[in-house]
């Protein structure tokens, strides 16, 4: 056990070391003139600015807009995507008829549809939510299909032989068997969702983190731009890791 702890501590300190090294390299590259400070501002300016932004009402307002869009899109698309996926995974008929469409469409870059969403929904909140949902739904459906197909017929046979009711089959077999795969799909869906919302904001919008970042970039406010990028990265990483933690918790039995 102590060996495991020691190697874990070692691994984490190595990982922190790499992050610190990247920032140090960045700083040194700018200070020595290797990189143009006008294009790439040093972290000694960017990091304090990112922290300061968290106290800036304008940034916070835009951050709130983006978070609200992302969350609403997620809450709406998750049940729809999972329900479609389970239906396609469980039903022979619907599966055979409609699964190919999802696999084909999943490979199409969703960004080319953005102009259509602007025409249909305008450039406001609704359009961002709709586009975030559109980005996320394919990976959700495909994960839910995989989840439904991952339920071993041995488990079902056993539970039925022991007299499980339909309700017990769903709650005690399907749900725990599928949960880790579903949560994995939710995590991937969230990444696509955030990408979609930010991308739509950067393309054309009146508010949101993507709007700010895009404006800062076009007006050459490089310190703000990089601070904004750091915030967007931190937001996505936090959401992703939270879902990954849950995924590992409900999937610990996968060994």
């Amino acid at each position: 056990m102590s060996h495991g702890l020691a190697s874990r501590a070692g691994r984490i300190s190595a990982q922190i070391g790499i992050v610190v090294a990247i920032f140090l390299f960045w700083e040194v590259a700018v200070q020595t003139g290797m990189a143009n400070a006008r294009v790439l501002p040093p972290p000694s300016l960017v990091l304090p600015r990112a922290v300061a932004m968290l106290g800036d009402p304008v940034v916070l307002y835009n951050l709130w807009i983006t978070s609200a869009q992302v969350l609403l899109a997620f809450v709406l698309v998750a049940p729809i995507g999972i329900a479609i996926g389970l239906l396609l995974g469980e039903s022979d008929y619907f599966g055979r008829a409609f699964k190919p469409f999802f696999f084909f469409l999943a490979s199409v870059p969703k960004s080319v549809f953005l102009p259509v969403f602007i025409l249909a929904f305008g450039i406001g909140f609704t359009q961002k939510v709709a586009f975030g949902m559109f980005q996320a739904i394919f990976v959700l459906v495909i994960s839910a299909i995989a989840a439904a197909e991952s339920v071993s017929s041995d488990f079902l046979k056993t539970a039925r032989a022991y007299g499980a009711s339909r309700r017990q089959l769903y709650l005690d077999i399907y749900l725990p068997a599928m949960l880790p795969v579903i949560v994995e799909g939710l995590r991937l869906g969230m990444i696509f969702n955030i990408t979609g919302v930010l991308f739509a904001e950067m393309y054309v919008s009146r508010a949101g983190l993507g709007h700010l970042v895009s404006t800062w970039g076009m007006s050459f406010q490089m310190v703000n731009l990089f601070a904004g990028i750091l915030l967007a990265a931190a937001l996505s990483i936090a959401v992703n890791e939270a879902l990954r933690w849950y995924e590992n918790k409900v999937g610990a039995w996968r060994g």
Binding site: S152, D154, F155, K157, T158, A159, A161, Y162, G163, A164, S165, Q168, D172, I173, P176, A177, W253, R254, G255
Partner: peptide, 30 residues
């Protein structure tokens, strides 16, 4: 007829998210 008939399948029929005890309890739990 779960009260009259017990079934022993191959080991792959154990529910992997349940402990050994929970697996053994499962018919009673149902």
């Amino acid at each position: 007829l779960p009260e009259d008939i017990g079934v022993v399948f191959q080991e792959s029929s154990l529910l992997p998210w349940k402990t050994a005890r929970e697996n053994v309890e499962f018919p009673l739990y149902l």
